[in-house]
């Protein structure tokens, strides 16, 4: 019975840690400005989040179709078997990412002042 109780404490601690990290991530989030695409850990390209576009990353055999639309990014199509990156949905906050492990493609939202903000501020 003592072991059962210890199990519960362990699980509660993990749950608490998860909640804490999630809360921290939620409180610290802010809108990103650019979409950074890396393949194999190397920078593939950087695109403004406020400009709608479509981008095919990779070749015919292994590709991810990235869509930037009304301030958020998502992957519409992927060549891989599991389609996990497609199901990861839309991202727009800084630090959030879409990852395709089979093609080793990472789409990450990064910060930096947006052009228009600069123009208004200046």
């Amino acid at each position: 019975m003592r072991k059962r109780r210890n199990d519960m404490i362990l699980i509660a601690l993990i749950g608490f840690a998860a909640a804490l990290i999630a809360l921290g991530a939620y409180l610290l989030r802010h809108e990103g400005a650019y979409v950074l695409v890396t393949v194999n850990g190397e920078v593939y390209g950087k695109y403004a989040l406020d400009t709608d576009m479509q981008l095919r990353v990779g070749n015919d055999g292994a590709y991810n179709l990235l869509v930037i639309e009304s301030g958020s990014a998502y992957i519409r199509e992927a060549s891989c078997r599991n389609q996990l990156c497609v199901h990861q949905g839309r991202i727009s906050h800084e630090g959030r990412s879409l990852v395709c492990l089979p093609n080793r493609v990472v789409v990450e939202i990064v910060g930096g002042e947006r052009q228009e903000v600069d123009a208004v501020a200046g």
């Binding site: 909640a19 991530a25 890396t38």
Partner: peptide, 18 residues
Amino acid sequence: LETGGLIYYLPVLLLSGT
């Protein structure tokens, strides 16, 4: 993958792993 963005996914992974 040299990206720190994955850390956002950690809470989900902690709970599902548990």
